[in-house]
């Protein structure tokens, strides 16, 4: 069965990031033989004076294909992990959503979108989780992280939000690689221009620093932009600041 595991509000200014905890849970899932984890995505939620957050208000989510009888173990493990590993004073929340049997996938996606635009409450999050039949739990502090955790799962399910954790190792900046070669990589599902256009496989791309993919249509997409230099390849990988809005 396919699940989404989403966490939020686990850190403080000095602790490990929420993304690292998500990666550790994803790795544990495989180590324990419960299934196979996919990449972690980072989802930006609303920044607003009425919302308590450490520094950026983002949720982290990964999907996994697990054995059906492992669901309870995954939830128990992630719960105890968050309770143990989250920073003191943080407000961690956990959402585990079994996608295949989800009663109303549109509702969890809509919750995620709303959490990017308006201030949501814990009560709204728990009520939505009950209607949807997804696991939602808090593991310390105020438990405010349940809002972001549910939202992160919704945004990941929607497939058009967030940046993938980590960068794509394409060698030193300045190298040139074809779209076809980029598309063959396991960590790149598709290559597109920043405006969304697909590119021909024979088009060439200059590699920049810290190359990252974003989530579009459920895929890990490498976005490229018109090259700054007149000579050389027509495209270059998007600088990090250009990907800020994802």
């Amino acid at each position: 069965m396919r699940i989404l595991v989403s966490i939020d509000d686990t850190d403080d200014l000095e602790s490990r990031g929420t993304g690292e905890l998500a990666s550790l849970i994803a790795a544990d899932l495989e180590t324990n033989g419960w299934g196979k984890s996919s990449f972690v995505t980072r989802h930006q939620l609303l920044v607003h004076p009425d919302i308590p957050y450490t520094s950026h208000n983002s949720a982290m989510c990964f999907s996994a294909e697990i054995y059906a009888d492992a669901l309870d173990e995954v939830i128990a493990h992630a719960s105890s992990f968050l309770a143990r590993e989250s920073a003191a004073g943080s407000d961690p929340g956990l959402c585990v959503a079994a996608i295949d049997g989800l009663a109303a996938p549109d509702e969890i996606i809509a919750f995620g979108r709303r959490a990017k635009e308006s201030v949501m409450t814990k009560e709204e999050a728990y009520a939505a989780a009950r209607r949807l039949g997804v696991h939602l739990s808090e593991h310390g502090g105020t438990g405010q992280g349940v809002i972001g955790a549910l939202a992160g799962a919704g945004l990941r399910l929607g497939g058009n939000d967030g940046r993938l954790k980590g960068s794509i190792p394409l060698g030193p900046p300045g190298g040139v690689v074809s779209v076809a070669d980029l598309s063959r990589r396991e960590d790149v599902d598709a290559v597109r221009a920043f405006d969304g256009r697909p590119l021909d496989g024979n088009e060439m791309v200059r590699v920049g620093e810290k190359v990252k993919t974003v989530m579009l249509e459920g895929k890990a997409v490498l976005l490229v932009t018109a090259a700054a230099a007149a000579d050389g390849p027509a495209w270059q990988t998007c600088p990090r600041q250009q990907l800020k809005r994802y």
Binding site: V47, P49, S55, H56
Partner: peptide, 25 residues
């Protein structure tokens, strides 16, 4: 520097990439 996934500036040394910055509206 903040963790990789929270960095948004291309310059590694940037207030926008600092672990101690807090985003506001």
């Amino acid at each position: 520097p903040d963790v990789e996934e929270e960095q948004v500036a291309d310059e590694a040394g940037s207030c926008y990439n600092c672990r101690y910055r807090r985003w506001s509206v």
